[in-house]
Amino acid sequence: MSEPDATTQRSAAQSVADVLLRRREQVAQRWAELPLFRTVFTVTRDEAVEAGQSVVDALAVVASSGRPGDLEASGFDPVRVQIGRMSASRSRAGVSVGQVAAEVAALKDAVVDLLKAELEQEPAEIRHEAVLFASELLATLRLVTLETMLDDGQEIIVRQRQQLLEGATPVIKLWEGIVAVPLIGTLDSARSQVVMESLLEAIVAQQAKVVILDITGVSTVDTLVAQHLMKTVASARLMGAECIVSGIRPAIAQTIVQLGIDLGSVITRSSLADALAMALHRIGLRVHSAPDSPPVAGPAAL
């Protein structure tokens, strides 16, 4: 196929822009039936059509600029917010980024169908160019959508990470004077700072005498994690509470020793249950089985 000359291309841009404006209503009506619009604007159909029209308008502006592949085209600006809202609503509904991109791609058919119908009288070459042009234009719209979604995703990740740092350190009261902190995942500097602060606050608030740090959920104990643990133990001690570290798994115990870290100053117990027994002992309590109580019911009794 020969290269389209500049005139053909310019006229392709113009005819696509013209058709979009002339058939704005029909395009938007067809779009309103597609999942992207239908599932986002659930209250009234008019709303969906209106939203579709503003997207058509944006496409027409970009088309008449003659650069269908221009991701930065200012013509897209008015719809960026709207596209962002729509795609956010789709991802809240559990639809993946890839699926949303496919839903945006599905907008193309309506445009191409109407374009072909409108340009029926035109020479095949012009028609062909116009369809190519429209395809590129809609591919760009898809990229704009993806870009918007990824930007939003980034924001969500940052926000969730912040929430994780702030909120996810439960300090559990096990007994009057005994609290436990189950540590989970990565104990990097930022997170261990948060753990330390919530723990110290809890020691004061609960008047805790014994603190159990359970590291069953920590996958790696390297020098930094060990240092954080030791610092936490030392500061708890300054607050008048004793620390017991529980849940050190065998593989981690071997690794700590070979790494050369001396946890000798830290009281350790292999399980949370052992740690609790020890903690109770420290506050002067002892667990006995009551002679007159019935034996603990097994699963069969349930």
Binding site: T220, L224, P250, A251, I252, Q254, T255
Partner: peptide
């Protein structure tokens, strides 16, 4: 094995840091 994994991951964590 689990022990070998843990050792290698811990060494990697140190060196990466």
């Amino acid at each position: 094995g689990l022990v070998q994994q843990t050792k290698l991951v811990t060494a990697a964590s140190e060196l990466a840091r």
